[in-house]
Amino acid sequence: MCENIALIKAVHENMSISEANTLAVEMLSMIGLQKIAYKRVENCSKDELLLVMFIRALMTKEKSVILKLPSEIIGGLFHIENILKDMRKVNTSKEIFVCDLVSSKAYYKECECHIEESN
């Protein structure tokens, strides 16, 4: 997982692998996922994979991160509130957007986020 996250900084900012790995582990530690830093995809849960994808996206130079249909990765939205809470623990200045179906709106009601509907 760590290598997967570190790759972005190593390629786009020429950061050394050791530095990029340290940064990746730090980011994972913020949400208590340092235990999966050196695990492979098959040894991680779906929630962990989504969070790793999120951290990887944070490594880019883009100003915002868009999560499109998270349920396709985690297989359901029953615990989306916990996942969004974990995401909020990461210290970032980027804007985070979640794009989901109107039918899933109810799952986000308890979450600390601004909900906007569009056609």
């Binding site: 570190a6 790759l7 190593a10 390629v11 020429n14 950061m15 050394s16 692998i17 990029a20």
Partner: peptide
């Protein structure tokens, strides 16, 4: 082409 990731 020879960035740190490639070298690794």
């Amino acid at each position: 082409s020879y960035n740190p990731a490639m070298r690794m």
